[in-house]
């Protein structure tokens, strides 16, 4: 039982990582005022690119993950062009992007025969001798590279967002594009580049799934995790550290599922899949209820295209 428990906790970060990274990327976009529903699609792009690059190069999974981030970022320029430059409805553009990416990744995965090809991927790194410490060693010092990098990534992104000029401008653009415009900030450029940067993180989340977790590409390998990341953003009220906490929570649930099944306890699979959304709905209702009429943490201009108008 003890062994089972340690295993469960030790596996949680691996399950939490894609949620955390994708949510962080989405938080960036949404703090800049772009409602980004593309996560599921961009994660698939990252996942396919990661496997594809590994297979093409015959290894080098770390490099493949970086390539995946770049690919995700490039594909997101399509979304950024539609929403930031052409001011298309962000919800519709986001949903269209998801279905486009689902089709595109399935098509390319088949075309290049990357489908069902197992790869070595990235593995666990044991930080010897710390990894030899009982219990703690297994949980904290025997993880893969990306998991080790998550805390630094979160620290860095959160610091940039809250303690830098770039972050100040980024948040201003998401709260009040008019005030930002008057302050001489290029709202369009900030939003466009933020979508690219945020999507790189979402792509990293997708690449993690295929290169570090499943170590194989199959169609739709992300299995709806992009939607959960989206829900996490609302759950976290657009705060990075809270999103990490939420990701750990959902990671723990997901990591527990096979173990609960193995222990012979029957919980319907669909109930577990539903759980994150139930939590999200609950949080949204709670926030709406407790802050009626008052300020919410939602970025003031979320989902609103910015048009500089000379005259009403």
């Amino acid at each position: 039982m003890n062994e089972l428990f340690i295993n469960w906790i030790a596996n949680t970060p691996g399950y939490a990582a894609p949620y955390a990274l994708a949510a962080l990327g989405l938080i960036l976009c949404e703090r800049a005022g772009v409602l980004n529903l593309t996560a599921e699609g961009i994660m698939l792009v990252g996942a396919l690119s990661g496997v594809g690059a590994t297979l093409t190069m015959g290894g080098y999974p770390q490099l493949a993950i970086i390539i995946a981030m770049i690919m995700a970022s490039l594909v997101s320029t399509l979304f950024a062009t539609m929403t930031v430059l052409l001011r298309v409805n962000q919800v519709i553009a986001g949903l269209a992007m998801v279905f486009f990416c689902q089709g595109l990744t399935a098509l390319l995965g088949n075309l290049f025969e990357w489908k069902n090809q197992p790869i070595t991927g990235i593995g666990r790194i044991d930080v010897w001798p710390l990894s030899e410490i009982p219990v703690i060693g297994h949980i904290f010092f025997s993880q893969d590279l990306i998991v080790f990098l998550i805390i630094p990534i979160f620290y860095l992104v959160n610091r940039v967002l809250t303690r830098s000029m770039v972050g100040l401008r980024l948040r201003a653009v998401g709260e009040s594009p008019e005030a930002s415009d008057a302050a001489g900030i290029n709202v369009t450029a900030y939003r466009f580049l933020t979508v690219m940067a945020g999507s790189a993180l979402v792509g990293l989340a997708g690449a993690y799934i295929s290169v570090a977790s499943t170590k194989i590409w199959v169609d739709g390998v992300t299995a709806g995790r992009g939607w959960i990341a989206l829900a996490l953003v609302i759950f976290a009220r657009w705060r990075p550290w809270r999103a990490l906490l939420g990701a750990l929570l959902f990671g723990a649930i997901e990591s527990a599922m096979p173990r609960i099944a193995a222990a012979g306890i029957k919980v319907p699979q669909y109930f577990m899949l539903m759980l994150p959304y139930v939590v999200t709905l609950g949080v949204m209702i709670w926030v709406a209820w407790s802050k009626r009429g008052g300020a919410t943490d939602e970025p003031g201009a979320l989902g609103q295209p910015h048009v500089r108008e000379e005259r009403r």
């Binding site: 005030a179 930002s180 302050a183 300020a295």
Partner: peptide
């Protein structure tokens, strides 16, 4: 000074003024 203020409501006074008068470093600014 516009009739409709160009201010970011959730930001502090200092953050709003820094936004319009950028400095190189945020903390020092």
């Amino acid at each position: 000074v516009h009739q409709h203020f160009k201010l970011v409501k959730p930001f502090t006074v200092a953050e709003n003024i820094l936004l319009a008068n950028p400095r190189r470093s945020f903390a020092k600014g």
